[in-house]
């Protein structure tokens, strides 16, 4: 398909540990199309984060193939294909918010004028105008995570990879950021790969929900969402939303988990 941006074919990833081989991913096949919001959900050890890390070329697959925009992951990385948002905001404490957002632009050698313009634009986009000169510790956890999203958006990557970005935040902040992320996605038309272990979050945000299960890490179901693009928070009380959430929960339970 022409508009496939991430394509995994029989993807395998194994780690050697003291307890022997661990299969983080086994025979994973997944196509993510341009402009899609795809969530990966599953219990710990199901390989959802590992999949994202393979896409970002932070891990090398031990079998199968994966392409990003038709390129190998490391080529795609050099072509600035994606921005990555980690579980923790991971802002450098010695840099102000603006300087943190500017970091990728410095490394990618944007000129000074363009750097300042882009920093201003993405900080505005995530609603942090006025906090440019604060240091990270002066901001709440939610604001720090917004700054880290701004940092991933600062260069024009078409793909945004997000690894449980809101996992450490309380539910009220998380709801708020979910709403903002959806509106940001609609405005920018980015392709988003989003890892979560929250069923409501996955259903609320996604076009498609990829359910994974552990030992070995694999995809057990892919659930299409027919919710409208415009999603107020109240949509979570609608029968359609509840029906999708129920299907996700059933698939998760069928996949089993380690506890």
């Amino acid at each position: 398909m022409a508009d496939t941006v991430i394509k995994a074919t029989d993807l395998n990833l194994a780690f050697s540990t003291d307890d022997g081989q661990v299969e983080a991913l086994r025979d994973v096949n997944l196509d993510i199309r341009k402009g899609e919001f795809v969530s990966l959900i599953g219990p710990s050890g199901c390989g959802k984060t590992s999949f994202l890390r393979v896409v970002a070329a932070l891990e090398s697959p031990t079998g199968g193939a994966l392409t990003v925009n038709g390129m190998r992951p490391d080529e795609a990385r050099r072509a600035r294909a994606y921005g990555y948002v980690f579980q923790a905001a991971g802002l450098y404490p010695w840099r102000t918010i603006a300087a943190n957002v500017r970091l990728p632009l410095e490394i990618m050698r944007y000129d000074r004028e363009e750097r300042n313009e882009r920093v201003r634009r993405v900080i505005d986009l995530v609603g942090l105008s006025g906090f440019e000169n604060r240091f990270p510790w002066q901001l709440s956890g939610g604001m720090q995570q917004r700054a880290s999203i701004a940092r991933a958006l600062a260069f024009d990557a078409d793909i945004l990879l997000m690894d449980e970005p809101f996992g450490a935040l309380d539910e009220i902040v998380r709801d708020h950021l979910n709403e903002q992320l959806l509106s940001l996605w609609r405005r920018t038309g980015k392709t988003i790969g989003f890892v979560t272990h929250s069923i409501p979050e996955a259903v609320y945000l996604s076009n498609r929900i990829v359910v994974m299960s552990p030992r070995p890490g694999r995809i057990t179901a892919i659930i299409e969402s027919d919710l409208p693009d415009e999603r107020p928070l109240e949509i979570r009380d609608s029968p359609e939303f509840i029906a999708i959430a129920r299907r996700v929960r059933q698939e998760l339970r069928a996949g089993g988990f380690d506890d």
Partner: peptide, 16 residues
């Protein structure tokens, strides 16, 4: 390692 991974995602070189 997360701080290092972040720079890896920008394809930063060792000098950077």
């Amino acid at each position: 390692s997360m701080d290092m991974d972040l720079l890896d995602t920008y394809a930063a070189n060792r000098w950077q």
